[in-house]
């Protein structure tokens, strides 16, 4: 089961952080269709967060079609978000690791690598 973290200084609203963490977990395969998400009470016990926030995040995920609430039994993963399969993701991740290693070898520090990445992302 997934465990949420909350970063209070990120500026990202707490409910959005939960949505993102579920999405990421689905992307990388930590969560599979049919898996149950922790109940609202479990989440608030763990990270001391407003239960309405958790409920709101789950509603958001539901409206995205990623999870479904089954009355009485909890919230379950319905499907993975659109996008490559975990295998493709894994391959891409390995490619990127290889590229980072290459960049380091070329003498770039982390900041320079991040800058390159950002430029590449904004090119489109």
């Amino acid at each position: 089961m997934i465990q949420f973290r909350l970063n209070t200084h990120s500026g990202v609203p707490p409910y959005l952080q939960i949505v993102q963490q579920v999405k990421q977990a689905l992307q990388v395969g930590i969560l599979q269709p049919g898996d149950q998400l922790p109940t609202v009470k479990e989440v608030v016990t763990h990270i001391a967060i407003n239960p309405n926030t958790v409920a709101k995040a789950y509603r958001e995920l539901e409206s995205l079609g990623l999870v479904e609430g089954r009355t009485g039994s909890g919230t379950f993963v319905k499907q993975r978000p659109a996008g490559p399969s975990p295998e493709v993701q894994e391959a891409l991740s390995q490619d990127l690791s290889g590229w980072v290693a290459k960049a380091r070898k070329a003498g770039l520090d982390d900041e320079a690598i991040e800058a390159l990445l950002r430029i590449a992302l904004h090119k489109r």
């Binding site: 209070t8 608030v44 016990t45 763990h46 990270i47 001391a48 407003n50 309405n52 926030t53």
Partner: peptide
Amino acid sequence: LSSLAQAVADGGLTVVMSSHLLADLERV
């Protein structure tokens, strides 16, 4: 705060809490 959040999750409860700790308030 976790105890408090659990109680709210049980439903039917409204809470007003004064505090100086803004970061805590934002999450709860």
